[in-house]
Simulated scan of single mutants.
Amino acid sequence: MSAPTTGTTGTTGRGTRRLAGLLAVAALAWTGLYALNEVLWDAGFAALGLDLGARVWGSLHFFLYDVSKILLLLVGMIFAIGMLRTTLRPERVREFLQGRSLAVALLLAALLGAVTPFCSCSSIPLFIGFVGAGVPLGVTFAFLVASPLVNEVAVVMLADTFGAALTATYVAAGLTIAVVVGWVFSHLHLERWVEDFVFTTPTATLLRSGRRPTLRDRVDAALEETRDILGRVWKWVILGVAVGAGIHGWVPADFFATYAGEDNPFAVVVATVLGIPLYSNAAGVIPIAEALWTKGMATGTVMAFMMGSVALSLPEAVLLRRVLKPPLLGIFFGTVAVAIMAVGFLVNAVF
């Protein structure tokens, strides 16, 4: 009986080592592609003799480079975080939060949201799982707000585009909004406006067996999550970059100075509202924000536009309506919108 067991163990060990090797090769390939992305597009346009100073070719270069960069980031980061999330169970979060003060629980939930999915739509399954597992509703909403607002991809791209100071401001503002919204919801006792099925049927994909997952289990789950999330957001990334490319090359510089400049006292409100239908995810909206910023829109107004686009979206409203009853859905959107506008006005006053 012992010989077959040993053989099986040896085969399993070799399979694990082979899979680990393939992951290392894939990581190196991804790193190389990401590092060479801009170089390759620059070389291609130069070889064709295309002038990047021209509106058409400049916009096209902007579009191709940013789409490639964002999709590479999405694939790499979703897969890496998916590997990490294979052991994240809603019940563990509930147990970890038990006995902690509300402020600590809200901050921990916001930080957890910052290292999980990239968009509000993909964070809703975890939202359902947390509520169904008994995590307090206010704490769960802190996670739901922070998850799309603050994530690794957004931080990297923000730092590259806007610099460290504004990136730190954005991250701090996003986490603050999440904590404040969670605190408000913790005191309103709104559980009656959550659909009943959330409390009785947790999402099957979030309920793992008690066994320790193998490397193959982790890889399979991460690949499935990557396909799932990427399949939902890739078209929004392309749309977002296309809008950004159009603004980058064709919108006159004085357009935003007129309608969303410092002289318009309602610019932050307008930017927040207009951001909602443009939503894709944080990665997809940053190119648009960059174009708006370079065209003269105030920093706080740009930040409000980004946050409105990321945290409040029509697709999110459709999905959340399956989970939340209309009164709670309205309260959620209204509270987050007011918090975003407050951040926009504050940043405009400081920067």
Rank of each mutant, 00 (worst) to 15 (best):
V323G: 08
D220V: 10
L206Y: 02
N348S: 12
D254C: 07
V233I: 15
L190S: 04
T258L: 01
T205W: 12
H189S: 09
S186W: 01
L28Y: 10
T86E: 09
T12I: 14
M157H: 14
L206R: 00
V237P: 00
A27R: 06
G49R: 15
V93S: 03
W234C: 11
F130D: 01
L112G: 00
A349S: 08
V150N: 10
A317T: 05
D160G: 15
T140K: 00
V56K: 11
L33P: 05
L144Q: 01
G284D: 14
S280M: 05
G240L: 15
G334H: 02
M297R: 06
L190N: 04
M77W: 10
V194N: 01
A80G: 12
C119N: 03
E225G: 04
F199Y: 11
L74H: 05
G138E: 05
E191M: 07
L346R: 03
S101E: 09
N37W: 05
Y259E: 09
L166R: 08
G174V: 10
L126G: 02
A47N: 08
L50C: 05
M77L: 07
V241M: 02
E290P: 00
G174D: 04
G49M: 15
N281K: 04
V180D: 01
D220N: 12
A282N: 09
L207Q: 07
A110L: 11
A35N: 15
T8A: 14
M307R: 15
S59Q: 08
H189A: 14
P4Y: 01
G246L: 07
A222I: 06
E38Q: 14
L36P: 07
D160L: 12
L324S: 09
C121Q: 04
D196G: 11
S209D: 15
R85F: 08
A142R: 01
A146P: 04
D66W: 07
A283K: 07
L207V: 10
